[in-house]
Design a protein around this nucleic acid. Sequence first.
DNA 1: ATGCCCCCGGTTCGGGGA
Length: 267
Amino acid sequence: MPQGISVRIASWNVNSVRQRLAPLLAFLREAAPDVLCLQELKCETAAFPRAEIEDAGYNALVHGQKTFNGVAILSRRPIEEAVIGLPGMAEDVQSRYLEALVTTETGGVLRIASIYAPNGNPVDSPKYPYKLAFMTALTARAAELLRLEEATALIGDYNIIPDARDVYDPPAWTQDALFKPESRAAFQRLINLGYIDALRAVSDDPGLYTFWDYQAGAWPKNNGLRIDHLLLSSRAADRLVRVEIAKNMRDGEKPSDHVPIYADLDL
DNA sequence: ATGCCCCCGGTTCGGGGA
């Protein structure tokens, strides 16, 4: 049997790609992901720092928007079969979904999506039903993709805390859109389809956070949330060898409030 | 407790994030 090839896939909500260019280039250099999905670009597609990313050795598929949201897929290998925007939400003007196909040099195929799901707060506003509608459309797309029987990774900022062990103070968050039963059920429906939460495939530990608020000393107090997730189809999860949260990226001068999470797949 | 902090647009403040 030929030896498989290790592919590193990563997700990072950078909270403005222009403000985070230096740590972004550092992460590309140090972690050397093969594919990196970005969220919260906070710039139009034309303002994306494409030249710097290409100089670092990456192709970039970008779906930007002025001021808010914005997602991208960076890949060392060519990016094929791009889908821009979440199918089923064609009328949505918010840039929250990108999907593409990446083929390894040995012919391994990986379908990957960069997802920035809505926050949904406050829950008595239209933002909460919009969050749930997005998750419904995402679940429909996720089901479609399973029928392709490929290695698929749906990765990004889901803005959902799956479980009490994924938040520093569960009782304080029970009324929050990120932890409401409907939100958790929406995440669970993706799991029920057969997608695997990569981090939970390798660890049952509590306190494995990916986000710490800028306010109230959340980072030094480790008041974090696990809301950035790598969901893998069984074809991808069968090849999972490692998952890491790059907590070191929360240090430094102007960090994002999220840190990268990445996984190695032996494709 | 929705204020703390951070980012954006475009300006000395408001909206948004989570």
